[in-house]
Design a protein around this nucleic acid. Structure first.
Length: 288
DNA sequence: AAAAGCAACAACCGCCAGGGG
DNA sequence: CCCCCTGGCGGTTGTTGCTTT
């Protein structure tokens, strides 16, 4: 007896998502929030499996998802976290705000793995790779390789160990900068985004999150100021536009912002006050 | 210029854990 | 306690674009 499919797959579309499908999914989640994923495709008018919708949203469409290559610093973090956690990509991703498990997993498989191997480090164990031998031992013997006494191999191992140590991410580096991965809260969208209501107060989500914040309530403007967003918000926004799905299809944004369906010519405003502030309230429903 | 090979990454698949009935 | 449903996770595949021959 086979397992029941997650949904009725008859007539369901597979493969890359189109801009139109993205728009439908975004619109649905913006208006209804994240609810039962199984129901989402039906309600949003998509011929997709709920699972596929969830994946598309969490890995690609979510507004807080960070696009682009991992920075050197993020890469270091991934390597160190992988050494501690193994292939628990979601756990690793939770330490890297804006990065998804899928993205990290892909990056690991395509970039980091190779990099480590090149450096003579086993990406699985984070230990030095055994020196290449002319004859590969049979599989059942391979576990004993490290026990073989070979002076040349030992010195090579020492050398590699040094490389491993130098490459190893040292959390103390962060501590010295008042920053440590253990202190990174797993950010939820409602913790990142701002309330539309200027009168509402935002309290820092945790005492460890910012030592510079002495006041206990903020207006969105203050928060932006503190984050240094406001002076360059246009730049920030356009960068976001360049790095996100919006750059591929401005019509999506247009639909979301202006709800216009007509004009042949698009007139994109660039000033921040023309953009609606996106907010997510406690129950994760988006509002403009 | 075309074909083959390779790299990157989006998306799919199957399994598992947790919660509710 | 068991069963079912759902969401989440990790491994794998498929597609696309770029580079090399």
């Amino acid at each position: 007896m086979g397992r029941q499919p997650c949904c009725d797959k008859v007539g369901l579309k597979k493969g890359p998502w189109t801009a139109e499908e993205d728009r439908k999914l975004i619109n649905f989640i913006i208006t209804n929030g994240q609810c039962c994923w199984r129901a989402v495709p039906k309600l949003a008018g998509l011929l997709r499996c709920g699972k596929s919708c969830r994946l598309r949203w969490t890995n690609y469409l979510r507004p807080d998802v960070k696009r682009g290559l991992l920075s050197e610093y993020e890469e270091k973090m991934v390597i160190d976290l992988h050494a501690q956690l193994g292939n628990r990509w979601s756990k690793i991703a939770s330490h890297l705000p804006g990065r998804t498990d899928n993205e990290i997993k892909n990056h690991w498989n395509t970039h980091i793995k190779k990099k480590l191997r090149k450096m003579g480090i086993d990406p699985l164990t984070h230990k030095p790779l055994p020196p290449p031998t002319v004859e590969q031992p049979p599989p059942e013997e391979s576990n004993k390789v490290e026990q073989v006494i070979n002076p040349a191999a030992e010195s090579a191992t020492d050398e590699v160990n040094e490389i491993v140590d130098s490459f190893k991410f040292d959390p103390m580096e962060l501590v010295n900068n008042d920053f440590c991965i253990d202190e990174i809260p797993v950010m939820e969208p409602h913790e990142i985004l701002l309330s539309c209501d200027d009168s509402s107060s935002l309290t820092p989500s945790s005492s460890s999150s910012s030592s510079s914040s002495s006041s206990s309530s903020y207006s969105p403007k203050q928060v932006l100021d503190e984050l240094h967003f406001s002076p360059n918000f246009d730049d920030y926004y356009s960068e976001m536009m360049m790095n996100s799905i919006w750059s591929d299809d401005f019509s999506c944004l247009d639909l979301l912002i202006n709800d216009c369906e007509s004009e042949g010519k698009r007139d994109y405003v660039t000033s921040v006050e023309h953009y609606p502030i996106m907010v997510m309230d406690e129950d994760y429903s988006w509002n403009f």
